[in-house]
Design a protein around this nucleic acid. Structure first.
Lengths: 252, 252
DNA sequence: GCAGCCGTTCGACATTGTCGAATCCCGTCA
DNA sequence: TGACGGGATTCGACAATGTCGAACGGCTGC
C-alpha cells in the first residue's frame, strides 16, 4: 500500500483535535508537532471549505458547520442504522426504555441511533457520541465478538468511571467470556451512576458482528431485586438483535 | 491571503460529493476533473483516517463513521444552538408544534436544532439537514436579513418543490421586503405539501442575524381560516427569537 | 509604553503530491 | 472455460506544491 497523503492526514488530525474543544493555533501546532506556519495553512484551508470556523475576537479555532451535514449524511447512508430503525422503535415501545445502536470506532462505541425512552422526561440525543467499550453493555458486546475491536483495547488502560467500572483486564476477559456464552451483555452503574443497560449483537452476512443494540435506563427498572438483568428485557433485546440481523442478511 | 492547500481542498470536495450518495472512483474523478490515480490517493487517505469507507464487494466509496462524531462535536461547540435549546423546548411546548433552528450554510439552511412536535406521532430528526433558502420560513428570514446569504442566491435558480414555491426572483424580493417590515417570515406548502411554517430572526451582538428559529406543522394548524399565519403562533415565535437573541447578547 | 504572546505572512527549498499509462482484479458474456 | 470489459489499483518520473522557520503586526496586560 503506497503512502497516504500527508496534508490530508494532518488536516484530519486537526479536525479530530478540534472535536475535543476549541483551541488556539499554538495549541494545535504543539499537539501535532507542526510548525505554526504549517498548521496555519491547514487551518486556513479547512476554514475556506467550512470544516473549521474561527472566533473573530479570540482567534481560536473550532469545528465548522459543514461537518454537521457530512455527519448526518453518513447516517443516511449507513446500512446498519437504516435497517435497524424500525426494530429499535418497536423495542423502545415494548421495553419502555431508551434504545441505542452502537458500532465500533477507533476503540470506542459510536452511537449511530438513539430512540428516547417513551415517556415525557427530557432526554438528550446522543447519536454521534463516543462511549467507552469496557464500561457499557453495547461496548462489551462489540469486545466479545469482534477481534478487531478487542485487540487494540488490550493496549489501552481501562479508565474508571464509577466504583463499579471494570478496570482489571482479567476481570474484563471473564466478563466477555460470559457475554459470549450467554449471547448478550449487561452493565449496571459501570459507566453512569444509577444507569444500567442490556445489549445484544447485530450480525451481518456470515455471522459477523457489525454492531450492537441495547436498552438502557434506571438500574432498578433494568435489573431485578437480585441484581440480575430482568429476563423479560433480555429476551426483548435479543429478539430485536436477531430481527435486525435477519433483516441485514436478507437484503444485504 | 495566500493560497489554500490543494490536496485538502480536493479532499473536502470529495467528501461533499459523497454526502450526496455512494460513488465509484470513476464518478468521483470525473466529477472533480481529476485523474483517477490522484482521486484514488485522496480516497485512500480519507479511508485511513475513517472519513470514507469502501464497500468490499462493489468497490464503491461512501462517507465514514468518523464524520458522524465530528458532526455532533460541532453541535456541542455551537454557541447559537446551546443557547437556544431551552427556549426551543419552551416554544415547542407552548405552541404544540415542531421547532427548528437554522443557520446559513453555502446557499442552504442548515438545521442545527430540532424539537419534535409534542405528541406521539413518529417524526424524523432533521438536525444536519439542508433546506432551501427560498422555500422555507427559516430560509426567508436568513435571506431577508443577511446580505451575505442573499447575494449568492441571486445567481442560483429558484427550484420549485410544490405548486406554491416562489420561483420568480421579483416575487421573492417582494416577499423578503415584507419579512423585513414585519420582522418574521411564513410559508405555506412552498416546500412540503400540507406543511406550513413561521420563523423569526435570532440576532447576536450588534443586531447581526446569526440564524432563525421557527415552528412548522400542518398548514391548517399553523394558518387560520383566511390563509394567514395564526397571530398567536407568530407572537410565540417572535418572543422566542427575541429571548434567544437577548441570551446571546448578554453572555456572548 | 514596554514586553510577551499569538495569529499571520513570506520566500526559498526540496519534499510531496500529481499525473497518465500500465496492471490487476473480478464479474459477465460468449 | 476463456476472452472481454469495466472498474479499482499501482507505479515512477516530474515539477508543482506544501513545508518550514524566521520575521511581522496587532493585541493584552503588566
Amino acid at each position: 500500500m503506497p503512502g497516504p497523503i500527508q496534508a490530508i492526514e494532518r488536516a484530519a488530525a486537526v479536525l479530530q483535535l478540534l472535536a475535543r474543544g476549541r483551541l488556539g493555533l499554538g495549541d494545535i501546532a504543539a499537539s501535532l508537532n507542526l510548525p505554526k506556519g504549517t498548521a496555519h495553512g491547514i487551518l486556513r484551508t479547512l476554514r475556506t471549505v467550512g470544516f473549521v470556523e474561527q472566533d473573530r475576537t479570540s482567534g481560536m479555532y473550532r469545528l465548522g458547520a459543514a461537518l454537521l451535514h457530512l455527519g448526518t449524511s453518513y447516517l443516511d447512508a449507513n446500512e446498519l442504522r437504516s435497517r435497524a430503525i424500525n426494530w429499535a422503535d418497536a423495542l423502545a415501545a415494548r421495553s419502555g426504555e431508551a434504545v441505542r445502536i452502537g458500532m465500533h470506532l477507533e476503540g470506542n462505541v459510536l452511537v449511530v441511533h438513539h430512540v428516547f425512552r417513551p415517556d415525557d422526561t427530557p432526554q438528550t440525543l446522543d447519536v454521534g457520541a463516543l462511549l467507552p467499550l469496557h464500561a457499557t453493555a453495547l461496548g462489551k458486546v462489540l469486545l466479545a465478538y469482534d477481534a478487531t475491536v478487542a485487540g487494540p483495547l488490550a493496549q489501552r488502560r481501562l479508565v474508571s468511571f464509577t466504583r463499579r467500572t471494570i478496570t482489571a483486564p482479567a476481570e474484563l476477559a471473564r466478563a466477555l467470556g460470559e457475554v459470549r456464552s450467554r449471547g448478550w451483555a449487561s452493565e449496571a452503574e459501570e459507566y453512569l451512576p444509577g444507569e444500567a443497560a442490556i445489549a445484544a449483537p447485530i450480525r451481518g452476512h456470515g455471522g459477523l458482528v457489525l454492531g450492537a443494540i441495547g436498552v438502557s435506563g434506571a438500574v432498578d427498572r433494568v435489573f431485578d431485586g437480585s441484581q440480575r438483568p430482568r429476563s423479560g428485557l433480555v429476551a426483548q433485546v435479543s429478539d430485536a438483535a436477531r430481527a435486525v440481523s435477519r433483516d441485514l442478511d436478507d437484503t444485504g
